[in-house]
Amino acid sequence: MQGVFEEKGPSNRYVAEKEGQMTQEPIRLSGKKTSTFIDKVKELLPDGGNLNLCLTCGACSSGCPATGLEGMDPRKFLRMAALGMDEEVTSTPWVWMCSMCQRCIYVCPMKIDIPRLVYFARQSWPRETRPKGILGSCDMALKNDTCSAMGAGEEDFQFVVEDVLEEYREAQPEFAEMEAPIDKQGAEFFVNQNSREPVTEPDELLPLWKILHTVGADWTYGSKGWAAENYCMFLADDESWKHITQTAVKQADDLGCKVFLNTE
């Protein structure tokens, strides 16, 4: 298994070391297949996510930065699911260490959707047991319609935007006409913004505004749904993910914007 399927790259040796560590323990099956998890996921995915087409080639694992973490890798995860090891698959914290980047699908000859399997494994965790940081960020975003995971409300955002804009219009007169509108009806672009800038580093708002001003873009933030981050998606909380996305999209629609510019 080692060597043959390794990709040539700067981290070849590293991956080999990690795989060496994790192949020491044989997996023992109970003998009776009781799987329901992978079958349920198959029902939810187009073409069943191709989850039963694995050739065990290992291309996924050899190019996965999460290989070796928690003694797991994408192929092993998929094989364990296929073998009906539901308890292990739905309890390993590895599912929170896979970023669902989808590189494994890209290199897979059978285009198996392992990231979606990971997503549903996340979803199988009782909500309150999912990682506190992600959970807290999602819950915070649900508290008001700005959808800010850092809890910035409509007035907070408006104050920061107006304050910073005024300061820079004066300090840099070439941009005296620059705008940073909130809820501008009929603007072409609806722009969202990661909460980090307005909350912790407002000067970092400026470069984006200057670029938009320089190219003459007709744009606006929304008082609702301006926050670009969506931790509910990472939490695998479908309803909350949908709520946050819908809040932003509705605001863009209500304002009559033509293009949703996601800066995240």
Binding site: W96, M97, C101, G133
Partner: peptide, 14 residues
């Protein structure tokens, strides 16, 4: 390769 900041990893505590 993914850098590992996405997917909620930054807030996961790991």
């Amino acid at each position: 390769y993914c850098c590992g900041g996405g997917g909620g990893f930054l807030q996961s505590g790991y």
